[in-house]
């Protein structure tokens, strides 16, 4: 069991490299229940790598991760049950229908009253009208909605969302925003990366900027109105953007 007095997620000194220079050079962060942390950084900053490490899909080069005060052990089914992960890839079988994908996930997670829960999440993500269609026929936005449904199905305490708004239309983004705010209020902790600053700001309670493999700045979301978020992003990563433009 985890300790409810401890932060939901505690990360200390996480490092990671891919045989070359370190992508992550000692990340420290913590996330409590009912908190939403918006992790910002340019492409290639290591945001997705960090999320994969926290989901237990990649081993870090160093550092520690604790879930609810206990060391995170990806091989522990109880730990995996606490995490919902949305990545760049859909993690779905495109030859199956939306409902069949969710039924398979429900089976693996041993979700009680799975049929009811599947209908519930399909409604939550607005896919209740196409559950029988093969996923390969879904549009990019519908695919993203189903990806979210899969991640939410087992009611995880910690949501790791890598660019969750990708492919969603404005209505979908608004719907996702309301859903995430609702989940956070209900006790979930949310760690997400995105470049859709205006849409995710209501979900977040804190903001952190990743640069050079470290978290260099951050604070309460109230300190960062959308315009300031954008301007700080441009200031912090201006040199890199210039360098990329020249290249």
């Amino acid at each position: 069991m985890t300790d409810p007095a401890q932060p939901l997620l505690q990360v200390a000194g996480i490092q990671c490299g891919y045989g070359g220079p370190q992508v992550l050079k000692g990340i420290d962060l913590s996330l409590s229940a009912r908190e939403g942390l918006l992790l910002l950084g340019p492409n290639g900053a290591g945001k997705s790598t960090l999320l994969r490490i926290l989901a237990g899909l990649q081993k870090p080069g160093g550092g520690t991760v604790a879930l609810g005060g206990r060391p995170f052990r990806p091989e522990d089914p109880d730990h995996r049950r606490r995490i919902g992960f949305v990545s760049h890839e859909s993690l779905l079988y495109h030859g199956l229908s939306g409902r069949e994908n969710l039924r398979f996930t429900a089976e693996l997670f041993a979700i009680p009253r799975a049929a009811e829960r599947i209908e519930e999440v399909l409604r939550l993500v607005g896919l209740e009208w196409v559950p029988e269609r093969a996923v390969r026929t879904y549009s990019r936005g519908m695919l993203q909605r189903l990806t979210l449904a899969r991640a939410l199905l087992h009611r995880p305490a910690l949501l790791l969302l890598d660019e969750p708004m990708t492919g969603l239309d404005p209505a979908g983004r608004k719907q996702l925003e309301s859903l995430m705010v609702e989940l956070r209020s209900a006790g979930a902790g949310i760690l997400m990366t995105t470049h859709e600053l205006a849409y995710v700001r209501p979900i977040a309670t804190r903001v952190a900027f990743l640069k050079g493999g470290k978290l260099v700045e951050g604070g309460a979301v109230e300190e960062y109105p959308v315009e300031r978020l954008e301007s700080r992003f441009l200031e912090l990563y201006a040199k890199r953007t210039e360098r990329e433009s020249r290249a």
Partner: peptide, 12 residues
């Protein structure tokens, strides 16, 4: 589509 990762995320 990374489906193997979904299997790895399952408490199984």
């Amino acid at each position: 589509n990374g489906a193997l990762r979904a299997l790895m995320l399952a408490p199984l």
